[in-house]
């Protein structure tokens, strides 16, 4: 697959997912936290029923960059860890797989909170 086509697909899929969320926001007045939770759970579900990987093969970052990808990693981690470690994997799998993302979000937020302050809003 040529790289231009890859990027086009990434753009279209990523954009479509976001516009779907935007429709939900406008129609149901959902808050951003609810949107994040909903799309994360969609990711968990897609991974759990095993269709996330084929979509990922096709859509690449178009599906892994949205929070759906985060949800899918949680589920994938749990599934793989259960196969390897049994019951312990139920608990360790999800967080282990997403540890990088959570730690980065927390660490950088902490760092930048020490450096910067909230800015006044104009619009």
């Amino acid at each position: 697959m040529s790289s231009v086509l890859t990027y086009l697909i990434v753009f279209l899929i990523g954009g479509l997912i976001c516009s779907l969320a935007q429709i939900l926001i406008i129609r149901t007045r959902m808050t951003s936290a609810r949107i994040l939770v909903l799309f994360e759970l969609i990711g968990v579900f897609l991974q759990a029923i095993g269709i996330f990987e084929p979509i990922k093969e096709f859509a690449k970052s178009g599906i892994t960059v949205p929070i759906i990808g985060f949800g899918a990693s949680l589920a994938k981690g749990a599934i793989e860890a259960v196969a390897k470690d049994g019951i312990l994997g139920i608990f360790t799998g999800g967080i282990t797989a997403t540890a990088g993302g959570i730690a980065a979000a927390v660490g950088f937020a902490y760092l930048f909170a020490l450096i910067f302050s909230s800015h006044s809003k104009k619009t």
Partner: peptide
């Protein structure tokens, strides 16, 4: 004050969301 009301009743100032 916009900023004190916002943090008490709504969201942090830097959260990227749209006002209805």
């Amino acid at each position: 004050h916009f900023s004190t009301a916002e943090r008490q009743f709504r969201y942090p100032l830097e959260l990227g969301c749209q006002r209805p």
